[in-house]
């Protein structure tokens, strides 16, 4: 049985490719240079959209985990695991770009800023989720436990957010609730980068899911022999 050509990763891949080649132009040529932070501010266009993608991934993992426990559909588990994995990747990007940003602005690689700490703790939970998968042999049990962790872990986000906020805040308040205090040129570049990173996120996610499905199919074919 040959697998059907899988369209979504291809479409999102092309979209991400086009967007990724336009984004640097918007970031470096079109958007102005910020007065206080200078060129270092440019990393904002990659840092914040990566963070959005990370949260999107964790949220998808949460939703698919609930669906898995409810419907016991193996595909839900597959989607939850892949979302968590891609989310972990974007989380790593957030942490690295955050450290690069913090060095010139705050003079240290890591300052325990509230939002970065939130990302770090979520990253740790995602890493634990990933480890849980590798350390359990029984596939069904592993899926069930990961779904439980996916739900418990995502529920933790508001608590980490509130706790780190009470604890300390260093972050530049760019995104304040509904209203965004950016000049129009930066706003356009920023929103374009958000679209770019979401396209990249979905391209990776669909690709990852199709890979996981192919692997499952291979396993079942092997078992038949």
């Amino acid at each position: 049985m040959r697998q059907k050509p899988y369209i979504p990763p291809f479409v999102f891949g092309i979209l991400a490719l086009i967007c990724l080649s336009i984004a640097p132009y918007l970031v470096f040529m079109y958007a102005g240079i910020e007065k206080e932070m200078g060129l270092a501010q440019k990393i904002f266009y990659y840092h914040v959209p990566s963070a959005f993608s990370m949260f999107l991934g964790s949220f998808l993992c949460f939703v698919f985990s609930i669906f898995y426990l409810w419907k016991r559909d193996k595909n839900c588990d597959l989607w939850a695991a892949c979302s968590a994995e891609v989310s972990l990747l974007f989380g790593t990007l957030v942490l690295i770009t955050g450290a690069i940003w913090a060095k010139p602005i705050w003079g240290a690689w890591w300052v325990w800023d509230a939002q970065l700490t939130l990302t770090l703790i979520l990253w740790l939970i995602l890493a634990a989720y990933h480890m849980l998968r590798t350390y359990i042999e029984d596939a069904v049990q592993s899926a069930r436990f990961r779904a439980v962790l996916g739900i418990i872990g995502f529920l933790n986000v508001p608590f980490i957010h509130y706790a780190t906020k009470l604890w300390r805040t260093h972050h530049p308040e760019v995104v304040r609730g509904e209203e965004i205090s950016l000049p129009p040129d930066m706003k356009i570049a920023f929103f374009f980068c958000v679209i770019t990173f979401f396209a990249l996120f979905f391209a990776l996610l669909f690709k990852r899911v199709s890979l996981a499905k192919a692997r499952d199919e291979l396993e079942s074919l092997k078992a038949k022999i």
């Binding site: 849980l132 350390y135 029984d138 436990f145 962790l149 872990g153 933790n156 980490i160 706790a163």
Partner: peptide
């Protein structure tokens, strides 16, 4: 949950501590 992993009890802190951080704080 941790008792069913290959690491058994040793896996418990890896699951519990990240989730407990806000309450610990």
């Amino acid at each position: 949950m941790s008792l069913n992993t290959r690491l058994r009890e040793a896996f418990l802190p890896l699951l519990t501590l990240p989730i407990f951080i806000p309450a610990l704080l």
